[in-house]
Amino acid sequence: MSALAVTGLSIRHADGRELVHDLSLALAPGERLGLIGESGSGKSLTALAVMGLLPAGMAAHGSVLLGGTQVIGTPDRRLNRVRGRAAAVVFQEPLTAMDPLMRVGRQLAGPIRRRRGLRGARLRAAVLSALAEVRLPDRAAVAYPHELSGGQRQRAAIAMALACEPELLIADEPTTALDVTVQAEILALLDGLVTGRGMALLFISHDLAVIAEVADRVVVLKDGSMVESGRTRDIVREPRHAYTRSLVDSAWALEGELDRLAP
């Protein structure tokens, strides 16, 4: 059974515009897929549709099988049991994923207790080890989200996403708001966690170099439609579609001078 199977997914706005058109993709357990596109390509909407979290006024059609459960058309209450276990999301801005008035440790304790039924001292120990897994010190447990730096917050958000031991991790531009050095740390962290837990990874980004760092396969989206998909190395080395070629050429052109000065 695949971790995620999307077939013929279309997302339509209430005013009739089609924002994503006939998208199909599949992720086997432990596989890493990149979703690349520029602003307005529909890549973030796809992530939301996979989780059944589309904003009001948008409707999804087609089929999204998440860990064997059909997401489209299933009531929210039933999806809640699937979310977290089948898949969890890390967003670009971790602040929006956290309760600003609750200490990080308590936010983390909720899902761990529900998932593993731990209480008291053992729950506390599990929270601390979850923080350690994302390289956050123990004292992060008693901090409020706003007291952490951007990178630390993203680590905490990753810990929360992992607390339910999902089969699939969806990362939607998780490093776009971060500084380069922090981005490198978070990418390395995600890489290690995904490998260590054997999770599948759906990594969404506008940055080809970042995708090439973490994903084996890639799907290229433009204006809501898939224009090309395949192994990342093939797409970067021999893009077939004109749009993909312009993406690849731009990426090479941008880093060209840097590669020359500091190979």
Partner: peptide, 27 residues
């Protein structure tokens, strides 16, 4: 500065830039 960085911070910055020419998955 970029070709032969002398400060460790510069070096760290330089190593952190995601680059196609160094990407892990391209082999």
């Amino acid at each position: 500065v970029l070709g032969a960085p002398s400060h460790p911070y510069t070096r760290r910055l330089l190593d952190s830039v995601p680059r196609l020419s160094r990407a892990a998955r391209l082999g």
